[in-house]
Simulated scan of single mutants.
Amino acid sequence: MKTWFITGASKGFGREWAEAALGRGDRVAVTSRGADVFGDLVARYGEAVLPLRLDVTDRDAVFGAVERAHDHFGALDVVVNNAGYGLFGMVEEVTAEQARAQVDVNLFGPLWVTQAALPYLREQKSGHLVQVSSIAGVLALPGLGLYHASKFGLEGFTSSLAAEVEGFGVHVTLVEPAGYATDWAGPSAVQAERSPAYEDFRANVTARPSARRGDPRATRAAILAVVDAEQPPLRIFFGDGPLPVIRQEYANRIAEWEQWDEVSRAAFGE
């Protein structure tokens, strides 16, 4: 039996994974900005569920929630940083407030949870930190610049983190989903005010056929396989399609670096 702490558990992947864990007999601290949304889980699973109200941008509140979950259950085994949202807008269109809020939730939120949980995981010399990144953490598209910035940042500090905590017996995994039928691009999203300067460009981009969306429920078995693995991956895609896209992306990067390698080496000096 594992004990989980999941942020953003009211819907989407967080909700699916909480139900997957509870359904097999695990215990879960579920967090959301509105803790009253977990009544059905409490009714079904009773004391196996600990609902907590949490804004992940409040560092003190994060540390308090993690401590409460640990004290309540007596352990923490799987910590899932799932809370996040999408900010849609060209880089020029995004306001300072929108940019800061995006990074506060998607980057600093997971950082605070990670910092709060690590002392417990180090002490028990076990545990698994699961960071919900995205294919948007390894590939950038127009119209999502600040969202990409938050996810690229999450990928960066998590890669360092994995090496830092390996000696303590703590596993770290970046889950990188492709497109799923969640409300990430719907009610949860924030839209920047559109500038007329980008209307032609935007029309060409949005005219492309929309990608097929995955079923969030299908990720239940996948997340359990990841957290149950003796040697879990540092990175794993969720979804059908990311790997061919990323193969091409990295091939293009290498080709460009090679094309400019002479200039690169000359920049080093004698």
Results as ranks from 00 to 15, higher is better:
Leu107Met: 09
Ala163Gly: 15
Leu144Gly: 10
Val91Met: 14
Met90Tyr: 15
Ala207Phe: 06
Thr173His: 04
Glu193Tyr: 09
Ser134Ala: 05
Gly241Cys: 06
Val30His: 05
Ser188Asp: 11
Glu166Asn: 12
Ala149Leu: 09
Met90Lys: 14
Val263Ser: 14
Leu118Pro: 04
Leu41Ala: 06
Arg265Gln: 14
Val172Asn: 02
Gly8Thr: 02
Val79Glu: 01
Leu118Gly: 02
Asp55Glu: 15
His70Trp: 15
Phe152Pro: 03
Gly64Glu: 11
Val91Asp: 11
Tyr250Met: 14
Arg33Val: 04
Thr219Ala: 02
Pro216Asn: 08
Ala69Tyr: 04
Ala75Phe: 00
Gly46His: 10
Ala20Tyr: 11
Val79Asn: 04
Leu52Val: 13
Pro51Phe: 04
Asp58Met: 01
Val66His: 10
Ala178Leu: 07
Arg247His: 12
Gly12Gln: 00
Leu224Cys: 11
Glu176Ala: 04
Pro177Thr: 04
Ala203Leu: 13
Glu97Val: 09
Trp17Gln: 10
Glu92Gly: 05
Gly84Ala: 01
Arg208Ser: 14
Val132Ala: 00
Asp183Cys: 00
Glu93Phe: 06
Leu144Met: 11
Ala211Asn: 10
Arg220Pro: 05
Gln98Ala: 05
Ala117Thr: 02
Ala149Pro: 01
Ala255Cys: 04
Gly169Gln: 09
Val263Lys: 14
Gly89Leu: 06
Ala207Asn: 06
Pro232Asp: 01
His72Gly: 03
Phe238Ile: 00
Ala140Gln: 12
Phe88Gln: 01
Arg202Gln: 14
Pro187Leu: 10
Leu118Phe: 03
Gly269Gln: 02
Asp240Leu: 13
Arg217Asp: 13
Gln191Thr: 11
Asp77Ser: 05
Ala21Ile: 10
Pro244Arg: 03
Ile135Ala: 06
Val138Phe: 14
Ala69His: 04
Ala99Thr: 07
Val130Asp: 12
Pro177His: 06
Asp200Ile: 10
Arg220Leu: 05
Thr114Tyr: 05
Arg235Asp: 10
